[in-house]
Design a protein around this nucleic acid. Structure first.
Lengths: 251, 251
DNA sequence: GACATTTTTTGACGTTTCGTCATATTATAT
DNA sequence: ATATAATATGACGAAACGTCAAAAAATGTC
């Protein structure tokens, strides 16, 4: 696996920088094939051809096709961490900041549906089995980090009194609730199930309403029933995710 | 595709019955391979060998490997419909009956994790693309049916006054909320993510608590805060899913 | 700068699996 | 008993993965 430098803190040699750059280059090509032609068209041969390297070289960077796709998934999670961190630093109540995470997640999903598909793919056990141990560890580290951000906002909700102390043992349950709700909703959205025909209205709206009522269930102040939640959605998204909104409108 | 009889209402000829039986036989073999050796080991050749038919014959029944797996998914959804119908007929408040659906879903997932993986797999776009039109339609019909059961309980909640009339336009949103929360939670559970290490406690408990608080958010009476919800969980699951519980304990 | 050694790249090759189709076999109709 | 239609078969071609011996490039030594 070429030269593994992930955990070293020494400065990178020229060689190592080159390897990293090429790795990114290959990943970019993978992503571009994915965007242009979809997952089924992505093969190691096509990547090699498009990158103008031999297949063996690609395999020097990624132990398997699944590892490569997992690396793409890691990029997506890193992007999401960026989104979460923006939400974390939003100037507002703890509940608003927590909601901001959800909004960011929804927007990211709408903007990069292929990323969601990648994440869905690597979460599938049959695929996961083929991912190498270190690559999985890399992804888990990122997932840990992203979960931490959410948990710390909940904790601050408790500390500030916005969220009643009786829920102090439920921090991870609250995070898990929102995570699973969002994850499930966006997967359902993404999977071409004709939700409209089943009688469902647009997904992001439903998700926003549902997650609000869910947090109301925990009595996290201020309740959505005492706020103009439509206005809040617009406020948060334009304050934090202006670029993303612009790009969405372009579509 | 052999003789397609799905929609005809005429009685089946002997021939057609034989074909149906063999189709089920093949599916059983597929399922058994899946259980014994996992998804990656499942190939059309293995199925053919194990069923003692030639590959061509298997392909006379299923247009592709994905179609076969989708058929297995349809079986799972049918089983779930059975579970949902039991919940529907539970003697209890509308809210309890709706909760019973969630409990049944959780139990089914714990009892048949491979089924959940199948469903996850066929929801993945890359796989879905390869499923034939009629097979997809078959699955969508089942999904419609299962969504109907949930929606009708919510509707009855509205009619009975357990659920406030102000939510009468949100029937599908409520169903979608629970669906996505459960779907997401169980996928996360199933996908080997080390949730414990991330700081999460066992999934089904969290899910039960979260879905209760979510429905509390909608003020669906009686609220979980006014009930012993732990007791209710036991009550419902032993009343409706005794067999399943027994099998779970055996594991 | 010439030569030796190590590292990296290459692409032909083996393997697996999917899905097809001409041929063989079986069932049905006359 | 024979002709015709339906079905089953498995050898085959194609696509993709991943490997590895040999070639090429980079690095080190004198």
């Amino acid at each position: 696996m070429q030269n593994d430098v992930q955990n070293s803190t020494q400065p990178l040699t020229r060689k190592q920088r080159e390897i990293r750059e090429r790795e990114q280059f290959i990943l970019d090509i993978g992503q571009s094939i994915l965007h242009k032609h979809g997952y089924n068209y992505l093969t190691m041969d096509k990547i090699a051809e498009s990158a103008e390297y031999s297949k063996g070289t690609i395999y020097n960077h990624f132990a398997s096709k699944e590892d490569l796709v997992c690396s793409l998934g890691c990029c997506s999670i890193s992007n999401l961490i960026d989104v979460f961190e923006r939400a974390y630093h939003y100037k507002g109540s703890t509940r608003e900041r927590y909601s901001a995470i959800g909004i960011g997640y929804s927007l990211y999903h709408q903007l990069h549906p292929m990323d969601s598909q990648i994440i869905q793919t690597i979460k599938n056990n049959a695929v996961r089995e083929k991912i190498s141990e270190p690559k999985l560890a890399e992804m888990e580290a990122l997932e840990f980090k992203i979960a931490q951000i959410a948990q710390s906002i909940v904790q601050q909700g408790l500390d500030s009194g916005d969220l009643d102390k009786k829920h102090q043992d439920h921090v991870s349950t609250i995070v898990f609730g929102c995570w699973s709700m969002h994850y499930g909703a966006l997967l359902l959205d993404q999977s071409n199930i004709p939700l409209q025909e089943l009688g469902f209205s647009p997904v992001v709206n439903m998700l926003w309403q549902n997650s609000n009522l869910y947090l109301d269930g925990y009595q996290w102040q201020p309740l959505s029933t005492t706020t103009d939640s439509k206005k809040l959605f617009k406020q948060i998204s334009s304050a934090l995710f202006e670029d993303e909104l612009k790009m969405l409108k372009k579509k």
